[in-house]
Nucleic acid binder design. Sequence first.
DNA 1: GTGGTCTAGACCACC
DNA 2: GTGGTCTAGACCACA
Lengths: 135, 135, 135, 135
Amino acid sequence: MGKDAKKTLLVPPISKAAPGPLYQQIVDGIKREVSEGRLEPGTPLPSFRLLAEQLMVSLITVKRAYAELERDEIIFRKQGLGTFVSQDGVARSRQIKREQTEALLREALREGYEAGMDDKELLDMAKRLLKEGKE
Amino acid sequence: MGKDAKKTLLVPPISKAAPGPLYQQIVDGIKREVSEGRLEPGTPLPSFRLLAEQLMVSLITVKRAYAELERDEIIFRKQGLGTFVSQDGVARSRQIKREQTEALLREALREGYEAGMDDKELLDMAKRLLKEGKE
Amino acid sequence: MGKDAKKTLLVPPISKAAPGPLYQQIVDGIKREVSEGRLEPGTPLPSFRLLAEQLMVSLITVKRAYAELERDEIIFRKQGLGTFVSQDGVARSRQIKREQTEALLREALREGYEAGMDDKELLDMAKRLLKEGKE
Amino acid sequence: MGKDAKKTLLVPPISKAAPGPLYQQIVDGIKREVSEGRLEPGTPLPSFRLLAEQLMVSLITVKRAYAELERDEIIFRKQGLGTFVSQDGVARSRQIKREQTEALLREALREGYEAGMDDKELLDMAKRLLKEGKE
DNA sequence: GTGGTCTAGACCACC
DNA sequence: GTGGTCTAGACCACA
């Protein structure tokens, strides 16, 4: 088995053309995997080197992403063993996402008011987007 | 009455401590003024030099902000005459804000789903925020 | 009869919101009037002051426009008498416009080539625009 | 081989003597390269610093040109990575050129009418210029 | 190394 | 006086 054998990706792919820093895309991708239960507590994450190779990014970029996830206590590192999803990683990532949801919603509604929309229009737009997202 | 008497600001103040580029704050502030009808079509905006002095930022920063507003066709500039709110500036700024509202809402709802929230929870959160905003 | 009585405008109106320098708009407007025969050779043009008042622009702006027209020999000034359309003003203004037509056409065709259009497409576009202009 | 060896220019040269802003020449040059397929989507453009050195203009001037190209979505910039031709950059630049063609054509025909030319004369002039361009 | 923002000034065209 | 272009530099975030 050669060094370029196909491997299952434990984290979502990223795009260099996408807006925003690469490390943020990695952070968001892992948070999403954890939050939606595809990465369970205790699961080991790929090593810096492996992930950097899979995503075709610099090692330092992966390090920065893992550092941010560790800061948010979604993952933890055990010296010499590797990196793992923390016990309450699911809860924490969901909580962070919930707070983010509220912040974005607040911002969206403020913009809507400034665009001259009223409460009903805003709620209708939200309902429409919810329905669209289902299709 | 001294030379540093209070003058009416035609644009909102900005904060160097706030996150995000200074020029963006100027852009957003003027868009808001136009969108909410406090700056009507044809109204002259303060010159680069005057606004830079009032906001205590570099002339260049104001230039950049005005350039972005002109690109969005919210204002137009005439050499030797000054800068003015364009004829359909209100409509354009409202349209831009409306699109921004939809984009933010979409992003918020996606985050909410990823946090495990269902449609009802999301709409309830939106309703709560709308009520809070009124107080 | 008061000083603000209605007068027939001998030159087309201008717009401060239109792109390009004000003096250029005046120049173009008068060239068009002469070229199309509405201002005949020998006709006196309004004085600086009168035209400046009618167009609501600075006197210096009108002076500059007249200077450019005189340079092109479309009008001539007689000390103490006023400004008049020159004898061969029609021919000259038509010639200038004809040269301008060729220059613009050349530029348009070059852009079209760079956009990947071929000769037929370009001629078809020209024919379409000619027909549209008639309606 | 010295340090000032010839390098292949990825963008067309500019001229300080030419009319119009320098940054516009850079913009037009790159748009042309993209439109005609010499710069393909995904291709990295030279960095600000390199291009400024090659063209012998200020770094700021190149920045401004790139900013305008990004606004037209012909290129995109990623911090730390560089500047690239966007995925639909070819289509966008062609579309922009096509619109420019129509605008110039419209203006040319209007000038022609004002010069007293009829449809046939205008089309003949266009055909003549097309033939000349071929030689 | 890359791009992103901000600053300080020059000179010119236009009104 | 106005805006339009060009220059010269600083400091920061990202890879």
